[in-house]
């Protein structure tokens, strides 16, 4: 083929130090000039496709041979189904892909060809014509001359835009005062999470940390049955607390909080005041509580004060006391909203 067509004229651009030498002449590959190399490449490509076929057969076999469900088969400690299905699929696809690319690289004609670019813009003539036609269309419609029609249409369309926004109103109820209250009530027992058993002061030693819930989770239903579903989740997401027993002398309560603890046992909300992750990473020796999400650190001996991290407010404390039977109960609900800040919180 002619090489002069491939050698585009270089573009002289003023003071270009070196002119564009044009495309270099085509160089042949071994597979172009050597039949043995060509045959070898052909065999390689075919072999890759062959391996892919075998791997796909392996895939089908694996699907039926390896069990999942109640009796997972394993291979060298791994789930056999997952490893074999994925492995055979991977081999098949990589082999098909590599085969195709190898074919393109070694056997397909590989002359570089040149295509001319055209400016992305339209021609000046097209622009003028189109603009003219659009102007004529607008003119024909008379929208500029009839402001009454135009403005009444704009008014209607504006309301059309509002309609879908209005339609979204029923996505959820209004907040009301829901965020200000939790399920805790005066006299409600503090129970262990998961097992829901009440706690006596004598149960706990100094250094014990208990993840707790309000007793209402276990008997808060209408007929004293456990809460379920959404109610349970909402109650938990605000009501979860941690109990920590420390040396009574370590606690430095703020004014008005002197009787919120019982013999060194304090109760704090488990919900971080930053963005609401549950926190229970406590250091027994320092009473510092760390949030695993963003590392806010609170001092439980010092009224849940923030000592590090992005949280801005102290952890709300739940005032507790002991009931007649000797179990730990809440004196009241939390005295402030728990969890992350929100606009109306003040």
């Amino acid at each position: 083929m002619s090489t002069t067509q491939e050698h585009l004229p270089a573009v002289p651009e003023g003071d270009e130090p070196i002119p564009n030498p044009g495309l270099p002449a085509h160089q042949w590959r071994p597979t172009d000039v050597d039949t043995r190399a060509e045959k070898r490449a052909e065999r390689q490509v075919a072999a890759l496709f062959g391996v892919a076929t075998l791997a796909l057969v392996g895939f089908f076999v694996s699907y039926f041979v390896f069990q999942v469900g109640d009796n997972w088969d394993t291979i060298a400690g791994f789930g056999a189904s997952n490893v074999m299905l994925g492995g055979t699929l991977a081999i098949a696809f990589i082999c098909i892909g590599v085969g195709l690319i190898h074919w393109a690289r070694k056997l397909m004609t590989d002359h570089e060809i040149v295509e001319l670019r055209h400016p992305a813009s339209s021609s000046e003539k097209d622009r003028t014509e189109t603009v003219g036609m659009v102007m004529q269309g607008i003119d024909d419609s008379g929208i500029a001359r009839r402001p009454l029609v135009r403005n009444s249409l704009l008014g209607a369309l504006g309301l059309v835009g509002l309609a879908p926004i209005l339609m979204l109103r029923d996505l959820g109820p209004l907040p009301g005062d829901k965020l200000y209250h939790t399920i805790w009530k005066p006299g409600m027992r503090v129970v262990r999470d998961v097992v829901y058993t009440p706690i006596k002061v004598s149960d706990l030693e100094i250094g014990d940390l208990v993840n707790c819930e309000p007793e209402a989770l276990a008997n808060g239903g209408p007929d004293g049955e456990p809460l379920e579903g959404v109610e349970l989740q909402i109650a938990k997401s605000k009501g979860a607390v941690i109990l920590l027993r420390m040396e009574p002398d370590d606690i430095t309560p703020w004014k008005g909080r002197e009787n919120w603890s019982v013999q060194g046992i304090v109760a704090f909300s488990k919900i971080c005041t930053h963005v609401g992750c549950p926190i229970s990473l406590n250091e027994r020796t320092t009473h510092h509580l760390l949030c695993p999400c963003h590392q806010s650190t609170f001092d439980l001996a010092d009224n849940g004060k923030v000592i590090f991290g992005p949280a801005a407010r102290p952890l709300p404390q739940l005032p507790i006391e002991v009931d007649d039977e000797g179990y730990l109960v809440a004196q009241s609900d939390f005295t402030e909203p728990v969890g992350p800040s929100f606009w109306e919180r003040g």
């Binding site: 299905l85 994925g86 699929l89 590599v98």
Partner: peptide, 17 residues
């Protein structure tokens, strides 16, 4: 097209192992 198969294969490999 070959690269599609390769990317698919690499992802399958990751999913498998």
């Amino acid at each position: 097209g070959g690269f599609f198969f390769v990317v698919f294969g690499v992802i399958a490999l990751m999913g498998a192992l």
